[in-house]
Structures are given as C-alpha cells and as structure tokens.
Amino acid sequence: MALRITIDIFSGRENPVIELSENESVEALKQLKPSGRLDQKKEIFPTEPTLGYRGLLIEQYDTIDKDLPQHFRYVHGELYGKDLAHKASGDAFEEFVCGSEGLIRKIKLDKEFSEMVLKEIEEFKKLRYLLDPKIVDLLRRRLSIYWPCRWWWPCYWWCCRKCRCAPIYEPASWNDGDIKEWNNNCYNYASNYRTDTFAQPGRASGNIWNDLSACNVPSANISAKMGAISDDLIDNPNANNKCPSQGHLVALVIAPGWDYHWYRKGRNGYWSHKPGHTQVTNQDNSGNAISDPRTANRGLYTEFCTFMTVMHGHIKIK
C-alpha cells in the first residue's frame, strides 16, 4: 500500500509530489477515511479555476483501499473523486502533509515553502466560501442589481460569471499594425472571427447587405442586420445589455445611409470595438469606457439597431 500526494498549487511549473512510505500511507489513510456525505450543494468541487492552492491530489498505487478511489482530492477536510463527496475522518490532513513538521519535509523545496502553502490553504478556504453556490446566489441577488462590475470588487469574477462566455478584451492580439489590423473590421472583431477580408454581413451566406439607410429596410432590400442573421448571428433585440447564457453579445449600430458598426461585450461587462482599419479600443467618441452602446457617444452612428448573439463556432463570416 502506498500513496503519492501532489500539492496542487502551481500553474506554470510542476506541482510538488510527495511519495509516502508504507507506514506513512497507513497513517494517512486513517485520516482520509470517508465519513459522512457532504451537503448536496458542496458535492461538486468548485468549477471556477483559481490560482494558488487548490487541494491535495492523492493517488493510491500498489494496493488500493477499497473505500477510496484510486485518485481523489482532499481539501479542507473534504474528499472529492469518483463517487466520492465525503467528509474525511481527519480534518487536519493538510497540516499533516504541509505543516512545518509534515511530510512536505521529504521534498527539497525552500524552507518558506511550507509556510507559503499553509497560508495558501487558508486563502483558498476564504475563496471557497465566496464560491459556495449558496453565497454566490445570495450575493448575486442582493448586489449584482445595484453594483456594476469593477476590477477592485473582490467578488468581481463571480459577479461577471454571466459573461463568462464573452471574449476577453485583448487589443494587442488585433492591433498588430499590419495585416490583422488592416484587413479586419468591426464585424470581424465583434464576432471574434478573423478573416483578413474586411468581412461584410451576409457575404459568406450570399446575402450581403445592399441598404444601409436604416436598421430595418424595405423587404426587397438587405440590411446589415439581415446580412448578419443570414451569417447565423442571432437577433437578440431584448437582450437589454445582458450577456446570453451561451455565446457573446454584440451590438449593431447604423450611420444612416453610410455605414454600419459593431461593438462586442467583453467578459468584464464592458464593450469594445474596432472602427474599420483602425485599432481595437474600449472607448467611445468621448473617450469614456462603454458600459452600454445604446448610451455611448457613437458619432455619426446615430441609430442603435439591435443586440445580437454570436454563438461560437456556429457563425460563418467572410
């Protein structure tokens, strides 16, 4: 009977691994024995990826204890694995492994590593409290109505979970000062779809726009909105600036008679855009961040047309 324990803490470098002797494994398994089942809402280990300590990954090899799966995770006195969502018999197993007198001494890392891990274990405990579905639901209901997302808001990322499918604002990946920047326009950027063709709504589906006089045009003509719909963007006029549960939100505006323009809503809840050949920006014509394209300074694009949803992998533009 033997155990291998991986301290799941790093992101770039390999996680530290501790090989236990048979005696150590026996002692460890006593503490890891499953006791009562966890509360139903805690049965799933937090799915939000976090940086820093994320638990101890335990692997049994040689002989397997039948009460536990071959691989499982221990976090704060709880066990997670295949058919496993239980409290552990010992609630100080992390101290047993990572404490200054713990098994962590078996691996040759800096002296401070044990202290850092213990601190991280406590930090993760606080983070898990915030990730608790009950707390998330409560806070979201109480606060998200009134508070805009701010980077400094400690609960920022779960407040914005509704936009978790939205693309991240990464202007540098478009602003290359070269082919990508020059040959992709607002439609490319909003749909997060690089074609290097200065894509036009409807061109991929053989239904390219021919009337930019307004958002809605006579039935014999094709508007930018109709072109986009034929490219499989989904008209979502009642989105009211809220991210869809799947895909991401874009907004179409019209400079009547001249042009159209697209914005996209990012994961942080704010909007960004790429005006023609120019660089991607998150500012409007007044230099302000764009929380809602309906109220942003849009210059000559005076007609707000509609919100639309881009389902990733389901659209085709050219």
């Binding site: 036009q200 930019l212 042009d259 159209y260 323009h261 697209w262 790429k274 023609g276």
Partner: peptide
Amino acid sequence: ASVFSGRPDP
C-alpha cells in the same frame, strides 16, 4: 479617406 467602420473606406 479613413471614415467607415464596417464597409471599406473610399
């Protein structure tokens, strides 16, 4: 002239 966003510039 750099003027449009969606359609190509003249």
